[in-house]
């Protein structure tokens, strides 16, 4: 393995990632890389390890082995994590949108979005202006002073996306962003994600929305039992999957 510190086209690169919870092996030797401006979708049945993969990439879970690199720099090298200060620096490169939004209920929409950047030393006025723009983009104009409990699930998730974007990440992770929503509310969330894709935002999306994944992704990964079973470009992946397991999974979803 060569040390790669030169400029890399990949924002995120994962090599041989391993993770187990006590005796249960959840991630077995996962490798992938995401290029700047690309959208990657990760699909698979529950328990396949796809959420754990995102949580490892965002340091919410501690990997047992393998490498995680951001922009060619090691955040995790052979299962060894970089020092706390540099991990904090890596954290500024990505954002994460949770299944359950995890908005701060005691903060207004504006404060939810703007507090973290301000705490990172950014100019308060600029941050507020950016927040207003982001809300406009999310179709939430004028909701600055609302509280999360006053918003619908779809609106809350869009605030959560705006909150992640306000940190100006280089890559944005979505962990089943529409799974907690009523079916009629998923559309508005998928619409803003698609809009971000059109603007060439780099994203990794764990999702069960097959049609959406097909439409929005440059690359699709199918995970099962902690391994990547199959991956490819969406047309080829959805149109003519090579693995029987993939076909079976997609069949279940088409019904």
């Amino acid at each position: 393995m060569t040390e790669n510190t030169s400029v890399s086209p990949s924002i995120l690169e994962i090599r041989g990632l391993q993770k187990s919870f006590s005796s249960l092996s959840v991630l077995k030797d996962i490798s992938l890389s995401v290029d700047r401006g690309n959208v990657m979708s990760i699909i698979g049945p529950s328990g396949s390890g796809k959420s754990t993969l995102l949580r490892c990439a965002s340091f919410l879970e501690t990997a047992d082995g393998g490498d995680i690199l951001y922009d060619g720099q090691y955040a995790v090298h052979d299962g060894v994590y970089a020092p706390k200060a540099s991990l904090n620096h890596f954290r500024t490169r990505f954002g994460l949108v949770f299944q359950n939004f995890n908005l701060f209920p005691h903060y207004s929409v504006m404060k939810n979005i703007s507090e973290a950047p301000v705490l990172h030393g950014q100019n308060k006025e600029e941050v507020r202006e950016r927040a207003v723009q982001l809300l406009k983009k999310m179709g939430l104009e004028g909701k600055e002073n609302s509280y999360p409990c006053q918003l619908s699930g779809g609106q809350q998730q869009r605030v959560a996306i705006a909150r992640a974007l306000a940190m100006q990440p280089e890559i944005l992770y979505f962990d089943e962003p529409t799974s907690a929503l009523d079916p009629e509310l998923t559309g508005e969330v998928l619409k803003v994600i698609r809009q971000l894709a059109d603007e060439n935002m780099t994203m990794v999306i764990v999702t069960h929305e097959m049609a959406f994944a097909r439409a929005v992704s440059e690359w699709v990964i199918f995970m099962d039992g902690g391994v990547i079973v199959e991956e490819g470009e969406p047309e080829q992946f959805f149109g003519d999957p090579s693995q029987e397991r993939t076909r079976q999974f997609l069949r279940n979803y088409q019904q």
Partner: peptide, 21 residues
Amino acid sequence: PIGQYEAAEVLGYSKVQTFMR
């Protein structure tokens, strides 16, 4: 909920900031 800690961690809040704010 643990999600509150996780959201704060990903947004770069320190441990003390997470607790106090």
